[in-house]
Design a protein around this nucleic acid. Structure first.
Lengths: 333, 333
DNA sequence: CAGTATTTAGAAACCGGTTTCCATTATCCC
DNA sequence: GGGATAATGGAAACCGGTTTCTAAATACTG
């Protein structure tokens, strides 16, 4: 492949001049610029990214850290949103893999890893609220950073998330409006930001309707179908049972399966409302709160590009929608 | 961050020596090596990847092209397999986005794009059998390349795929063994390699059981639920109906939904067998042929690393499994 | 037309590494 | 102890760009 030196020779100018033409710097006569451009075109020349990165410390690359492996149901859509925006702006995506370092001494955190590759910014996704100190250096650094679903900010760091609180509140309010007074909640790991916020929304809606909340009807677990299934099994054994259940989609689906497996049905015996609107939910006709996952990715990418370009970096909170399908019914009394 | 020059100064040696230590080249006295290593450790130094790439033309990075956006149900798992292997070997993943070039003149194909970023190899996924000439340059180049589900080979190119022919054959044979003689097939776009192979497997199994195949019972379309749904609707209107249907999972699920929506049931009225074993299939209790998507990713990554290391590059064909669930039944007569 | 201001182009240093090749030093042998 | 040989370390070139700074060429004054 042609290099800048080849082009310089062919155009009988110095590489400095070629570089100026490439980068549209002033101080090159129109005539020479034309000549250089012609030669570049003839040779299908484009400056080498790596060399460019070395001298500019920029790379037209956005890094992604995703060590927790963002929930399968989410990943693809979020990634697609990121990809769309990055592509449109000419950026590629560097996905940092979990490496097992060869017992080498280096103690590289996210900042060092990112700088070592000269990425222009990073998107952090799939992190829980664990070991927050791991982010200190990154937050303090000048590396443009956007967290997905983790409300961390810094000089050059911000975040995007769905409005989990209001989304959950809408869900539970909807159940209340349908006449439900006994509402259970099954949710994710206790420390997770999203789970915490949704739980607050749950409580807030109940308050609004003057319903006291029963701690026995709140279950925590992993974001796995089994968690919902097991929690529901417990509910089914209770003397006093709730009439409705609020749970993230995959947990809600687990609950539905437990209900059916035990000879009951939805929504006749229990109303169920989910959160997320994952692909699967349609197949269970699950009424749920929709998060726009694609938009989450789009927003994250746009935000990191803004930070890179020194524009405003206010966090982005995406609104959610209530998607009414068939798992909730009105009850009386 | 410390550079090689800093280390050289601190250790009172030349950067050439530091470089030799880093790369474990011979010709450095044990004593100096120890000293240099100590200084490196003290300064948490690790050589800059970009600079390294520039001089070695290697980057410890695998590129991925995925313009067709590999089927949602596949992408995540395949990607995870790739990621696992790359991570274990110290490679990161560069995901090339679809860029809209700024009307610039450059006419860069996959080869140029890859070389421009100095990736060590590329994995091509989500491509159909369209415009094969786009791959000519890449196949002829020295860029280590692995195609997923596209049987292209070259000096430094190979591929991984599932054994679609035998997988399909197993599926249809299973139906035949259950007594079915009237079998329909719904499949993907006509030009796609995987669709073609599966169709051959379908035919081959029928031959084996001396069953003539009815062209009216073969449907092509996109890999979308609706395709299966619509095809099944047509089947339901036929005077002579098949008793069993073979279709890729998402199409099979579409068919199941159509069957149910029209008041029939599975497997009582129709036996259905799928192909892929996507996440959704469990939820429909779909009997299907399982492709190991994670392993597809693992194999692709391992293969590209082999090519990079000048080891053998024979294509990898993964075997499939019959997963018996509840959508097929034995019929008599 | 000489003197000054402005364009324009290029030389050189730099980004942070690797690698070749040569000079020095240490080791070996008789 | 001197000469040959092997081990060691560094200078310099290179990878392919960007950027600064200065020199040369051109244009503008009066």
């Amino acid at each position: 492949m042609a290099t800048i030196n080849d082009i310089a020779k062919l155009a009988k100018v110095s590489k400095a001049t070629v570089s100026k033409v490439i980068n549209q710097h002033p101080g090159v006569k129109e005539e020479t610029k034309k000549k250089v451009l012609r030669i570049m075109k003839q040779n299908n020349y484009w400056p080498n990214s790596v060399a460019r990165s070395l001298s500019t410390h920029k790379s037209y690359t956005i890094g992604i850290f995703d060590p927790g492996r963002l929930n399968n149901f989410f990943f693809r859509e979020v990634f697609e949103g990121i990809e769309r925006v990055c592509g449109d702006k000419g950026y590629d995506i560097l996905y940092f893999t979990d490496k097992k370092w060869d017992g080498s001494w280096v103690n590289f955190g996210y900042t060092e890893i990112s700088k070592n590759r000269s990425v222009d910014g990073v998107i952090m996704m799939g992190f829980g609220r664990v070991e927050m100190s791991k982010f200190d250096a990154l937050l303090a650094s000048d590396m443009p950073t956007v967290f997905i679903d983790l409300d961390l900010v810094g000089k050059n760091a911000s975040y995007v998330t769905s409005d989990n609180f209001n989304g959950a509140k809408t869900a539970v309010r909807y159940l209340c409006q349908l006449g439900h007074k006994k509402i259970a909640m099954i949710t994710g790991p206790n420390g997770f930001k999203v789970a915490t916020e949704r739980f607050s929304g749950f409580q807030s809606a109940l308050d609004e309707f003057n319903i006291s909340y029963n701690p026995d009807w709140v279950f925590y677990g992993q974001y796995e179908l089994e968690t919902g299934y097991e929690a529901m099994k417990k509910i089914l054994k209770m003397r006093e049972k709730p009439t409705a259940i609020f749970a993230e989609d995959i947990l809600a689906i687990g609950a539905i399966r437990a209900i059916r497996d035990h000879g009951f049905s939805v929504p006749e015996d229990f109303s169920i409302i989910g959160f997320d609107d994952i692909e699967l939910s349609k197949h269970y006709d699950l009424t749920t709160i929709r998060q726009d996952k694609y938009m989450l990715g789009v927003s994250a990418a746009e935000l990191v590009l803004k930070i890179i370009n020194k524009k405003n970096s206010a966090p982005v909170i995406l609104q959610t929608d209530l998607v009414k399908r068939g798992t909730c019914r009105r009850i009386t009394g």
